[in-house]
Simulated scan of single mutants.
Amino acid sequence: MSAKAFIEIKNGDKVAIGGWNSNNYKGIKKLFDINGKDIDIVGGWKEAIDEKDLIDYKLVNESAADFFQKVPDGEQPQIVVFLTGSTNIIKDMENITKNEKNKIKVIFIISGYTNRVPLQEIKRVTILCRKLEIKIHTIDLKDVGYEIGYLLEDSRNMPWTIDTLDMDLLAYLQKNNLSSGSFLDLGTGSGTQAVKLFELGFDVTATDLVYAAFEETAKRNTNVHFLQDDILNTGLNKKFDYIFDRGCLHALGKPHYERYAEKVKSLLKEEGLLFLKYATNDNFHLTEDVLSYYYSENELNNFISRHFTIVEMKQSIFEEVEMKSIFSVLMKKATH
């Protein structure tokens, strides 16, 4: 994501959000904050408003036309952000700009992993903005970071979310007749893996750095212990029979790997098992900066061997995105 997109923004500029909800309000605030802009989000619009979407002192309406009609004098936004899943952006912009009191200077269109604004729609909006001398910027959700991404997109639309239990983990559990004991789902994301593990009979705790990632799943599945936690500075004080990591380690960055290993070992019971699924750096369709986060298979093997006993290790894939990976079953080394 280029910082150039935020050059025209001034501290104190007022922002309206198309596709509003309480989480993306927080996400947009963070997005501007990390780019050094202290903006004022006055509200937004959404076709079907839920009670949870309402925030004190923020104006929320069911359409762009209604929203801009009801914005008090002196509160008119200079910036409009259209979020993932926004529909009829061209219609909204026509309704906004036909009223001369609305002085929009910049719009942002955010494309999600699966909810992407059609290219034809972006072209039509671009032509309109050029005619009205409004700057337009498109931002890809994959470029905004993990925490902001979960605030701006439904976790069910994330490319790594699957509704079934990971195929490698399921195969190992079935082969070894494992269906009880305590399980930590580390970096749970939307929480689907944690729910499937509970359904198999395990006592499951699921953690993620971002509360919004699992918030809705946690409400529907109260038998799983969902917690916001950072593995590198974990507040957990329980030891587990099993830990499942499906993509957490490879997202941390290599400088944090050693601390990760020490923290995971502190959470495992003696001879407890870590199930680790890790994307390797031979996924050449990814950009160089992303691949720099990942080890090769040999590097991963060397790292693992310093901290764990390898029970099983095999080549695999993250099936939902067809990324090459290594699936490992690792035992905490006994202490004497």
Score class of each variant (00 low, 15 high):
220 R>G: 05
300 L>P: 09
37 K>G: 04
172 Y>C: 04
276 L>K: 02
261 A>V: 02
25 Y>R: 06
81 V>P: 04
44 G>S: 07
3 A>N: 06
93 M>Q: 07
202 F>D: 01
292 S>M: 14
267 L>K: 02
75 E>C: 13
204 V>F: 01
61 N>P: 05
274 L>P: 01
66 D>I: 14
247 G>Y: 05
221 N>G: 04
45 W>A: 15
76 Q>A: 04
105 K>F: 06
255 P>M: 05
251 A>D: 05
309 T>N: 12
65 A>Y: 14
176 N>G: 10
220 R>Q: 06
45 W>Y: 13
95 N>I: 13
152 L>D: 05
46 K>D: 15
187 G>L: 08
140 D>K: 14
85 G>V: 12
34 I>W: 01
224 V>W: 00
100 E>N: 12
109 I>N: 14
271 E>I: 11
52 K>C: 06
275 F>W: 00
202 F>Q: 01
269 K>G: 13
258 E>I: 14
162 I>F: 03
96 I>D: 12
273 L>S: 05
164 T>D: 05
98 K>F: 15
112 G>D: 13
162 I>D: 15
5 A>G: 10
95 N>Y: 14
179 S>H: 05
46 K>S: 07
173 L>E: 02
64 A>W: 09
220 R>M: 15
270 E>V: 07
27 G>N: 05
293 Y>R: 08
30 K>E: 15
108 F>V: 08
148 I>Q: 05
115 N>A: 08
25 Y>W: 05
125 V>Y: 03
153 E>T: 09
85 G>K: 07
273 L>I: 00
51 E>I: 15
34 I>V: 02
170 L>H: 11
235 G>W: 11
301 N>H: 04
105 K>H: 08
170 L>Q: 04
321 V>M: 12
63 S>T: 14
151 L>Y: 12
161 T>Y: 15
173 L>H: 02
248 C>K: 02
5 A>P: 07
305 S>K: 14
283 N>H: 09
119 L>R: 09
186 L>K: 03
44 G>K: 08
256 H>V: 09
310 I>F: 04
89 I>D: 14
10 K>L: 07
172 Y>D: 04
210 V>I: 13
268 L>W: 02
308 F>V: 01
233 N>L: 15
37 K>M: 03
13 D>P: 13
146 Y>V: 14
132 L>F: 10
315 Q>G: 04
243 I>S: 01
